Computed example of a mutant assay.
Amino acid sequence: MNRTTPFDMVGGEPAVRAIVDRFYDLMDEDPAYAELRALHAGELDPMRHSLTGFLTAWLGGPRDWFVDNPGKCVMSLHGAIAVTAQTAQQWADAMQRAIAEHGAAQGLEADFSTKMADALRNMASAMIRKERVPA
């Protein structure tokens, strides 16, 4: 049985890595994402690696991120961060741009890119809270 996953459709791990790298480059370089950038450590390489692993698994690729982070989920990992509506919006906008740029360059169907970005926007919106969640 031939099964095509979103991971396959996006272009596998190299494509996921390219999207994540573009996302963090946008966050690091575009002043529109300054509040979001301020929530992150100075060195982004560990985050690039982690988000690539998470998105790889989330899209149906190898589940190494979940094996390496047993019992953890994206929501719980962000509980210690006061995610505001504005920073969630910045995250979603930067991710949407990264996905759209990759999709256009790789010939992905616009509908696929939009659905992927929308699902991640919903995830970011679900993390909005007024204050940090105690550990």
Rank of each mutant, 00 (worst) to 15 (best):
G107Q: 06
V83Q: 04
A105F: 06
D64Q: 15
D30Y: 07
Q86P: 02
G12F: 09
I128D: 03
T56R: 12
D8G: 02
A98M: 08
L55V: 06
L39K: 09
Q90E: 14
R37S: 12
T87N: 12
L51C: 05
T84Q: 06
M116T: 14
L36F: 08
T56Y: 08
L120M: 15
L51S: 06
V74D: 00
L108H: 12
W65I: 10
A92G: 10
R37K: 15
A126I: 07
I99F: 11
P62G: 11
V16Y: 02
A34Q: 12
T114G: 06
M9W: 02
G11W: 09
D8P: 01
F23C: 09
P70H: 09
G11D: 06
S113K: 05
A85M: 04
F66I: 00
Y33T: 03
M127R: 07
N122A: 12
D68Y: 03
A104L: 10
V74M: 15
N69A: 03
S113E: 11
L51I: 10
T52H: 08
M27T: 13
G60R: 03
A38T: 07
K72F: 09
R48S: 05
R121K: 14
G61L: 03
Q96H: 11
Q86I: 09
F112P: 02
R129M: 05
D45E: 15
E35F: 00
D8E: 13
Y33H: 14
P46D: 09
T52R: 12
A105Q: 12
G79P: 05
M47P: 00
G79I: 08
S125R: 12
G79S: 06
F66Y: 13
V16C: 03
H49P: 00
P62C: 00
V67I: 13
T84D: 07
W91E: 09
I128T: 07
A117F: 05
D68E: 14
I19R: 01
A18M: 02
A92H: 06
S113T: 15
P70R: 11
V16Q: 02
A104Y: 04
D45F: 06
G79E: 06
T84V: 09
H102L: 08
P14K: 01
Y33C: 06
E101V: 09
G11R: 01
A15V: 08
L120S: 10
F112N: 03
V16P: 00
A88V: 11
H102Y: 10
C73F: 07
M116N: 08
Y33V: 02
F112W: 09
G61V: 04
T84Y: 01
A41C: 01
